[in-house]
């Protein structure tokens, strides 16, 4: 079972690292639409990795199935929620910033 332990530790570490990366990105990136990408980072890979990390440590039981359900739920709802947010932001007059992302890039005139 040593292999499982190592694999689980690896998943937890990488997941935790990606999680913090997403948080940092949420603070560093210049505008709303690029921050969405940072948030996606923590939800598409970090969350499943962390959950897979504890799944690998668990004994066989119904709990395993529940964690799997949580993982599927997070993965399935993430694009919908992201899309709803992006659409609402566009609707509400937010314009994506185009260019080098230092705050002086011109905004696009599309849509």
């Amino acid at each position: 079972m040593l292999l499982l332990e190592i694999l689980s530790g690896f998943c937890l570490l990488v997941g935790g690292f990606l999680c913090v990366t997403g948080g940092i990105g949420l603070l560093r990136l210049p505008d709303f639409f690029s921050r969405v990408h940072a948030a996606g980072l923590t939800e598409t890979l970090a969350a499943p990795l962390l959950l897979a990390g504890i799944m690998l440590q668990m004994p066989w039981s119904l709990d395993l199935l529940k964690v799997l359900f949580i993982m599927i739920l997070v993965l399935a709802t993430n694009p919908t929620a992201t899309h709803a947010m992006a659409k609402a932001a566009l609707h509400g007059g937010q314009e994506p910033q185009i260019g080098n992302g230092n705050g002086q890039g011109e905004t696009s005139s599309k849509a």
Binding site: C19, G22, G23, L26, F32, R35, V36, A39, T42, E43, A47, L50, L51, I54, Q57, M58, V67, I70, V74, N78, A81, M85, A88, A89, G92, Q94
Partner: peptide, 25 residues
Amino acid sequence: SVYDRILAANLFGTKTVLLIALGGY
């Protein structure tokens, strides 16, 4: 903007799910 706040709140919620799952385990 208000959308940034909602985005952060959504992220916070997902992380709460993870925290409850990891902590519970």
